[in-house]
Every structure is written in C-alpha cells, then in structure tokens.
C-alpha cells in the first residue's frame, strides 16, 4: 500500500514536469526561447520515481533531456525557466541553457550535452562520497544511446570494482536520438549488461511510477549500505521528437498513440482515484497550483535581464 503523501508528491512531481515541458515546447515554437530543446514528455515517471526515492542531500547527474530530473530534484522553476531564456537570473546566468542546468545546493550536479559524458563525473561524485564517508548516493541518468559509449563501460566497471555508492539509471526510450534500439544494439534489455560488471541489473516499467520508485529504492538502499552499484533500466518512451523540430521519420503516429495508453500520469491519477488516495478536486487544485507556478516562472524568465558579457569572462577561472 502506498502512503498518501508519497503518492501525492509523485503525482505533483510528474505533473510539474509535464506542464513545464508543455510550456517550454510552446515558448520554443513561438521563438521565445533560443537554442535547442529536448522534451522529457512521456518519461516523467522515471525522474519522479527515482528522485523521490533519494534523500535531499544525494547527488544526481543528468543528460541533454534533463528538465525532468532537475524538477524532480526540486530545482526552482523560476531559475530554470530564466536559464532557458538565457537570462542573468537563470541557474547558469544564461551561459548553459537547457542542456546545462545545475543546482549544487540540491545535489544536482548538472545536465550534460555529451551523450554518456556525465557518467564518469557521476562515478567520481560517488567516489568522493565513499572517501568522505558522507553516506550520500549518486544517481546517474542516461539513455539507451549512452549505453554504447566507452565512458559507460569504463565507469560501470570501475564503480563495481570499487563498490561505489551509485545507481546507474538507464532511461531506455527505445531510440538513440533517432536510431531505433534494434539498429544500435543487439540486446533488448540494457540491464543485461550489468552482468559483465558484476553488479545487479534490473529492468523496471518506466511508465509506472510506483514500479520505478520501488526498484530505485532497493538500488539506492544497496548503494548506501556499501554493497555497490546497480544498473537500473527503465523502459520508457518520449512522446515528442529527439529535439523540437525532429520530423520523426523513424516511427509512426500510431506507435506514439499506443505508448500514450500507458501514460504515466493519467494512469497514476486513475490508480490514486480508485484507491481513494486523492479526489478529483484535489487533482484540479494541484494542476491549478502548478499552472500558477509556471506562469510566474515564465514571467520571471521573460522579464529578467540578460547577462553582462564582461561578467561572463570573469568567472571562467577561480582566482
């Protein structure tokens, strides 16, 4: 039986991610946001299920599709939206943008523009925790595409050999950018690779937030107790393209509609209503509150000043 507070938090987190992403997509299409955008819509259960199983001080490392991880770790929507606008008030003062949001005060060690590039960094953070004996766990998010990078193999091997307190969470959304999984690897379950490093490999239903939460909890507990890393694969699906503007010739609309039947938010809401853990009115209130928070964040981003280019140069090094 799921406790009421947890259920509510999981739902709020997923809805917040969904609404943030829907707004970001609109602003991007309206040319209000510069740069590139990789939408997380459809994958919300993974970020929410994993991050809510962590302690507040724990670390996460994220990817180019990182907005969901940031929100689930509790970042400020205002600062995040301001960063998407490229403004001085953003998380990175407009120097990072969508692919480089970090909040070290929350243990969010940064999104990453290099596929698989954050895996060694996360591994090092776990090494730091092991050396400092601070009982923190690091979660490293990456996708199916990243599981073919050398950095993935090097890191998992090293982390397992040293029993580092880390959980590798592979969000298998079935496409490495635009290439279907069957064309880029001969395995179906990426968790199979764990055997090669001598660590547990677990596949979870990435469209079911409770499944993710429970499996993540076990892996996090294992890492915290000094038993070493786990490779947790979450089978999921992104509803939108690799990036906004992706014409998606590699799949059909019917494919996407089929996956939407497993929508992590709609299904979880239905489940909670059936279990009488939440009422329709409460869901409506939650949605309204998030919409207000979003409007505030967008207004903040829109009206914030741009960064001063001179100040930009001065922070390259610590003097």
């Amino acid at each position: 039986m799921i406790e009421k507070d947890l259920a509510r938090n999981l739902l709020i987190t997923m809805k917040k991610i969904r609404i943030f992403e829907e707004e970001a997509v609109k602003l991007f299409a309206a040319h209000e946001l510069p740069g590139w955008l990789h939408s997380y819509i459809g994958e919300e259960a993974v970020a929410a299920g994993v991050c809510l199983a962590l302690n507040p001080g724990d670390y996460i490392a994220s990817t180019h599709r990182g907005h969901g991880h940031c929100i689930a770790k509790g970042v400020s929507l205002r600062k995040m939206m301001a960063e998407l606008y490229g403004k001085e008030t953003g998380y990175c003062k407009g120097r990072g943008g969508s692919m480089h949001i970090a909040d070290f005060s929350l243990g969010m060690l940064g999104a990453n523009g290099i596929v698989g590039g954050g895996i060694p960094i996360a591994t090092g953070a776990a090494l730091g925790s092991q050396m400092k004996k601070d009982s923190k766990v690091t979660v490293c998010f990456f996708g199916d595409g990243a599981s073919n990078q050398g950095a993935f193999h090097e890191s998992l091997n090293l982390a397992s050999a040293w029993k580092l307190p880390i959980v590798y969470v592979c969000e298998n959304n079935l496409f490495a950018e635009t290439t279907p999984q069957a064309d880029h690897q001969a395995i179906r379950n990426i968790s199979d690779r764990a055997a090669g490093y001598g660590m547990p490999g677990v596949t979870t239903d990435g469209m079911d937030v409770m499944s993710v939460y429970k499996d993540a909890q076990k892996a996090i507990e294992r890492a915290r107790s000094g038993k070493g890393p786990t490779l947790l694969e979450a089978k999921t699906y992104r509803y939108r393209g690799h990036w906004e503007g992706d014409p998606q010739p590699y799949r059909t609309k019917a494919d996407i509609e089929e996956w939407k039947k497993k929508d992590p938010i709609a299904n979880f809401e239905r489940f909670l209503l059936n279990q009488k853990l939440i009422t329709s009115d409460e869901i409506e209130t939650i949605s309204e509150e998030i919409a207000n928070e979003m409007n505030d964040a967008i207004e903040f981003g829109r009206t914030s000043p741009y960064a001063d280019p001179q100040a930009c140069l001065s922070t390259l090094y610590i003097h």
Binding site: L109, P120, G124, K132, S155, L158
Partner: peptide, 23 residues
C-alpha cells in the same frame, strides 16, 4: 590503482573534485 580506463579516470577525478575532493 585504477582500471586502464582513461575516460573514467579523468571524469571521476572531475566528479570527485566537484563534490569537494582535490584529485
């Protein structure tokens, strides 16, 4: 002593330093 994994060595050095070590 590390595995022969230069990407992991340099990346883990950065990660450990990022959380307060001096690698």
């Amino acid at each position: 002593d590390t595995p022969i994994s230069e990407a992991a060595i340099i990346g883990a050095a950065a990660g450990a330093s990022l959380v307060g070590m001096r690698t």
